[in-house]
C-alpha cells in the first residue's frame, strides 16, 4: 500500500464521516440555523469527493452554486421567516418517525444490495483527468446542446417567476375595468375551510417597493 493510496483512503473516510454526520444533523437538529450551516458542510464535503474523483470543474461548480448560492439563499430564507413559533405537539409523532425511519432503512438496504449485486462494467476506460473541463464544454455544445439551451429557458423562467412571486408591490385595480382586485383566486367561497381566520383578516401588506 503506497502513501498516495493511504492518503486517499483517509481523505475518503474523513469526507464520508463529515457527509454522513452532517446530513444527519441537517435533518435532526432542532435549530434550523445549525442545520443550514451543516448543509453547507455537506455540500463542501461532496465537493471534496468530486475532487477525489478527478472532477475539479464540477467540484468548483458545486462550491460556487451550492455553497455560494443555494446555501446562502436558504440562510436568507431562514432569516426572513424566522418568527419564533412553538410547534403544536402532534400525537403519535414519535411512532411516525420510527416507522418512516424503518422504511428508509429498508430502502437503504435495498440500494446497498443493488450497489453490490450488480456487475458494473468495471474497469471502465482510463479517466481523462484534467482534460475533463474541455470534454464537458464539447458535450455542452454537441450532444447536450438541446438540454443546455432549454436550461437557459428554465433559469430565465425561474428568475422571472421568483421575482413575480416574491415582490410586494401589486396592482390594486383591474387594468381594464378599474375595479379593485386583490391578487387572490376568483373563487372566494370556500371560507368554511379557512381554519385560521385571524391570520386571514390581518391588514394586507402595503404597496411598498
Amino acid at each position: 500500500m503506497t502513501i498516495a493510496s493511504t492518503t486517499q483512503q483517509i481523505c475518503f473516510l474523513v469526507l464520508s464521516a463529515t457527509l454522513v454526520f452532517g446530513s444527519l444533523g441537517v435533518v435532526l437538529l432542532p435549530n434550523i440555523v445549525y442545520s443550514a450551516f451543516l448543509l453547507g458542510g455537506v455540500f463542501l464535503s461532496v465537493a471534496g469527493l468530486y475532487l477525489m474523483l478527478n472532477a475539479s470543474f464540477v467540484a468548483a461548480a458545486q462550491v460556487l452554486v451550492y455553497v455560494g448560492a443555494v446555501n446562502v439563499l436558504i440562510l436568507f430564507a431562514i432569516m426572513l421567516v424566522n418568527k419564533q413559533e412553538t410547534l403544536a405537539a402532534i400525537p403519535g409523532l414519535l411512532l411516525r418517525r420510527i416507522l418512516s425511519g424503518a422504511v428508509c432503512a429498508g430502502l437503504f438496504l435495498l440500494l446497498v444490495r443493488v450497489a453490490f449485486t450488480t456487475d458494473w462494467a468495471l474497469p471502465g476506460p482510463t479517466p481523462i483527468g484534467d482534460e475533463a473541463t474541455i470534454r464537458i464544454g464539447e458535450h455542452l455544445f454537441s450532444d447536450y446542446l438541446l438540454p443546455f439551451e432549454l436550461a437557459s429557458v428554465l433559469l430565465l423562467m425561474a428568475m422571472i417567476g421568483a421575482i413575480v412571486l416574491a415582490r410586494r408591490d401589486v396592482f390594486s385595480s383591474d387594468v381594464i375595468t378599474g375595479e379593485p382586485v386583490d391578487q387572490g383566486l376568483i373563487e372566494k367561497s370556500r371560507t368554511p375551510l379557512l381554519l385560521d381566520t385571524n391570520d386571514q383578516k390581518r391588514p394586507m401588506l402595503e404597496n411598498t417597493p
Partner: peptide, 23 residues
C-alpha cells in the same frame, strides 16, 4: 469516473442537476 472515464457524460449530467437544483 469509474465506468465512463473518457466521455464523462455523468459530469455533464451533474452540472445540469446542479443548475436545476439552484433554480
Amino acid at each position: 469516473t469509474y465506468l465512463d472515464g473518457q466521455l464523462i457524460r455523468g459530469q455533464v449530467f451533474t452540472i445540469f442537476v446542479i443548475t436545476v437544483a439552484a433554480a
